[in-house]
């Protein structure tokens, strides 16, 4: 069970609660969208809820809580924020272009043609 220091101001506790609930709620909605939407390219979008505002709110909550508890500024969570904001878009872009290439070489007519590829082959691709 969680032990809360007695001198924690009430407004900090409320702020941390709101931020934690909001961030985890957004992450949950993001993965719900991952389950609900019907094609891969649409499914790319919802997880970014978790990786932008979701993680952001949890990091802010952690910063606020530890700053209040240790009564000194604790800001090293900024590092995670920097890494996540730089790395998630790059990973997603790589993944989307890989998926496009796979769909395209499989001869899926619903995706647009990347300009730097040869003509599609008719044979279907293995999983």
């Amino acid at each position: 069970m969680m032990s809360i220091p007695g001198d924690l101001p009430a407004w900090v506790a409320i702020l941390v609660s709101v931020l934690v609930l909001f961030g985890s709620g957004l992450t949950l909605i993001g993965t719900l969208g991952l389950l609900r939407l019907d094609n891969f390219y649409a499914r790319v979008h919802p997880p970014t809820l978790g990786s932008t505002l979701g993680v952001g709110c949890v990091l802010l909550a952690s910063m606020a809580y530890f700053t209040a508890v240790e009564s000194r500024p604790v800001v090293h969570e900024v590092l995670i924020a920097i890494f996540v904001t730089i790395t998630t878009p790059v990973g997603l872009m790589l993944l989307v272009s890989a998926a496009l290439r796979r769909d395209w070489t499989a001869g899926d007519p619903s995706v647009p043609l990347p300009p730097d590829l040869p003509k599609p082959k008719a044979k279907p691709e293995k999983q």
């Binding site: 970014t48 997603l92 272009s97 496009l100």
Partner: peptide, 17 residues
């Protein structure tokens, strides 16, 4: 621009010619 668009939910950068 690519990082901005991709990290905004709802838009994903796919390719730039």
């Amino acid at each position: 621009l690519s990082c901005m668009l991709t990290s905004t939910p709802g838009t994903v950068w796919v390719n730039f010619d």
